[in-house]
Amino acid sequence: MNTFQEKTNLTRRQFLRGSGVLAATAILGGILAKFGFNVQARSQEYIAQRANGLYSLDERMTLRKSHENPEILQIYKEFLSPGGVTPLSEKAHHLLHTKYGDEIPELIAELKQHSHQAA
């Protein structure tokens, strides 16, 4: 009975094709990695684009400093600090400032009392 063993020789063509597939795999892997890094780099671009949108809106405004806003001056003069523009006035403190952490319960009590007096 015959037993046919496998071949052991490696022809030039076989070698080239074998290594070719390995090389192609490695190159393809590299290309995919590069693609990945490109996507990575582009994935955050929208943030800068949105920010630039805001900066160009800013540049197109005639008024670009908060203290020049006429309605800001108006609210101080008519409401927050009658007669002048004085930030940190009593009313501004009451409406526009807050407290943090452990001081909050005290602040809430204060605000509730205030609205009682007003009512």
């Binding site: 496998e6 052991t8 076989q14 070698f15 094709r17």
Partner: peptide
């Protein structure tokens, strides 16, 4: 590597 190369050669 020989077996692999012959396999690739065959299927290609």
């Amino acid at each position: 590597f020989g077996r692999f190369s012959r396999f690739i050669d065959t299927i290609s």
